[in-house]
Amino acid sequence: MIDGRERALAAFEQMVLIRRFEEKCAEVYSTGKIRGFLHLYIGEEAVAVGVMAALSADDNVVATYREHGHALARGLGPGSVMAEMYGKATGCSRGRGGSMHLFSTPHRFFGGHAIVGGGLPVAVGLALADSMLGHDRVTVCFFGDGAVDEGEFHESMNLAALWRLPVLFVCENNLYAMGTALERHESLTDLCVKPRAYGIPAENVDGMDLFAVEAAAQHAVSEVRRHRSPFFLEAKTYRFRAHSMYDAEAYRSREEVAEWAQKHDPIDLAAAQLERRGLLDPAARAAIEDRVRTAVQQACDEADAAPLEPVADLLRDVLTPEAR
């Protein structure tokens, strides 16, 4: 349980921020100010928020293209994330990355990877560096159930286990890889058996329950820190929106989506728990919504006003500039 009223409420507020931020993104997308792929995390917020709550500022984070939530939960400013989606020079990747490639070295947020499975070897390497340089860090690597199909997943499990590297692998199992349901892309649908086959301890958790995720992540992170070896956490979750901005959703029924949204919305669940604990009342909830609305609007206003990167700087940062 996220202890302390303030921490619990802050985590809750982050979930609300992610939700409203992304709803706003979807709205702005239709105006054309945001283009490209836009993979919404709506429905899965408890996973990123719960896991980030278990990290320290010095830990490393590697995420996927569905990473707005992770970036915000890690503390990147909504303004710099929104500006990135607008393709502006003030964006956290100077407009080079867009929605799928958010980076921030001050937050040790190493992207934003849009090759399914491609971030895992990089996370393994970050942990290798920490292990050899004697840093007490944990590297957390997020990926989807689809990434488990990839060879890079298996190579990374083996490397992390073989070399005993401090990586927390967080599999966000939302039951679909784009339009392919889990049982149509994995021969064994209990994903925890795969890391265990490499000797990596694995647990799963209800990814819709913020407090359960946070507790599981605390445990997982402490195991990684204590043994300086990998751990695998499967968060069972569900995406409420299309894979990217729009798809026909021919691969799942409206009823299925509606049922998840009604019964398992992570924000509703967390709110109910907080209310039961006497930490949240309608007035406090309204105040959170107000603050979030203002922050999101401000992010959009700033992004709107921000300058574009000059085209003269197109080739900047392909290579390190030569020292003069």
């Binding site: 990089v122 390497g125 290798l128 560096a129 890079e152």
Partner: peptide, 14 residues
């Protein structure tokens, strides 16, 4: 792919 990628991560990590 795994160890070249780990090389990239290790380079990022110092």
């Amino acid at each position: 792919s795994g160890f070249l990628g780990a090389g990239i991560g290790a380079a990022l990590g110092g």
